[in-house]
Simulated assay, not measured.
Amino acid sequence: MASISHNKRVSIAMTTYNGQKYIEEQLHSLCAQTYPIYEVIVCDDMSEDNTIDVVLGFKDALPLKVIKNKDRQGVVRNFRQAIANCTGDFIACCDQDDIWLPDKLGDSIELILPITGGRPALVYTDLQVIDSKRQIIAESFWTMREIDPSKTTFYSLLFGNTVTGCTMLFNRKMSDEVMKMPDQATMHDHWIACIAYSIGKVRFLKKQTVSYRQHETNVTVNKEVNFKNRAANLWSMINNGFGDFLSSQLNQAKLFDRIYQGILNEDNAGDLKRFINCEKLSPMFRKLMYHYMLRQQRD
């Protein structure tokens, strides 16, 4: 990491729920950041374990502000609340069970400064995947999931998110847009990525800055994406019916259209309408379109 000024205030937006098992390791990794942290906003969604006690144990080591929800918010609303309480120049999203590598914030700040201006700006990075005992499962999440970020577009994101929230850092203009995110959004990081790739600016770093923990309550990276697994998933869908394939993505796209239809440029507005029109197709044809998009991303 090049030497950069530390005059930009960075807020950490962290949400917690029953995270006592791993959160101490994450908090230690925040303490070890080479770039100073301005504040850590922790929004706890009614944890039933000792998560809050563990967090408060770091009150002398980190600039903490802890918010205890009185009603269950869920992931999307809780992250939006955490972001709303951040006051720094830049905001980084933080999961309770990962581990940040020491230069995570510094690398991200260096990456975002050239694109920060009057538009929402976002940077994100690769990750390494670890298990519950911190053993490395995959050196590169992008390689494991066959993700090529140079081929990511607004249209490809509509089919499914490839921008991992725990690596995100964005500016105040983006946080203003996040406040418009509806409760019905599929996931906060997917919504933020769509904003960045449609009306904002975005950069990515082909470097692992986070150890992304896979464990019994986190199934997002349970299996490598390879031909065998994709074929097994497809065969399962054929046998069990395709159901409402892409329905959650379509619902989110319609929400996005409702908010941004008058702001998107002609190309992005057209892509959004084209994707929403997939709803008229049978779920099987949606699945075929999805696999075509995967090939386009990986070829």
Rank of each mutant, 00 (worst) to 15 (best):
K133F: 11
S150K: 08
Q96H: 12
E48F: 10
N222W: 14
L122I: 00
Y17P: 04
Q184Y: 06
V66W: 08
C43H: 03
I199D: 01
G88E: 01
N251E: 14
R9Y: 00
E25L: 10
Y38V: 03
G241W: 06
Q128N: 10
D60N: 09
F242K: 08
S211R: 13
I259R: 04
L62I: 01
F90V: 00
M168G: 02
T162F: 08
T186R: 15
D89M: 01
N85D: 09
Y124Q: 02
G74N: 09
N50I: 11
A61S: 12
R80P: 02
C31G: 02
T186H: 13
I91C: 13
P36I: 00
A92N: 13
Y290S: 08
S247F: 10
M181S: 03
M174E: 03
K254H: 07
Q20F: 10
L122N: 01
R145W: 02
Q128M: 13
F159K: 03
L158Q: 06
R213Y: 07
S282N: 10
G19M: 02
I276L: 12
I83T: 05
I238A: 10
H190D: 14
I4R: 11
R286M: 11
Y260P: 03
D271Q: 08
W235A: 15
I12P: 07
E110R: 09
A269V: 03
G19Y: 00
Y38M: 04
R203P: 02
V210R: 06
V163N: 00
M46N: 05
R9K: 14
L294C: 14
G160S: 07
Q33F: 09
T152L: 13
P120F: 04
L255I: 04
S247I: 14
L56M: 10
R274W: 10
L246V: 04
Y35E: 03
T34P: 04
F159N: 06
C278S: 10
C94P: 05
Y260M: 05
L62D: 01
D49M: 09
K223M: 15
R295K: 15
Q297M: 15
V210S: 01
M14K: 05
G243V: 00
R286F: 06
E224Y: 13
Q297L: 15
S282W: 05
P36M: 00
D107C: 14
L250P: 02
R230G: 03
D299Q: 14
M1T: 15
F170W: 02
I147D: 02
N233D: 11
R77A: 15
V225L: 10
L127F: 09
R286A: 07
S248T: 14
D60G: 02
K151Y: 06
Y212F: 15
L27N: 03
N50S: 14
D131A: 11
N226P: 01
R72I: 14
Y197S: 04
I199H: 02
Y290G: 02
R274Y: 10
Y22P: 05
K21C: 03
C93L: 15
F256C: 03
M1H: 12
D49G: 08
M187A: 11
R274G: 05
D53Q: 15
A231C: 11
N277V: 06
A138H: 12
S236W: 15
D71R: 14
M237D: 08
A269Y: 14
H215T: 05
E266D: 11
Y22I: 07
F204C: 12
F227D: 15
Y212R: 12
R172N: 09
D267C: 08
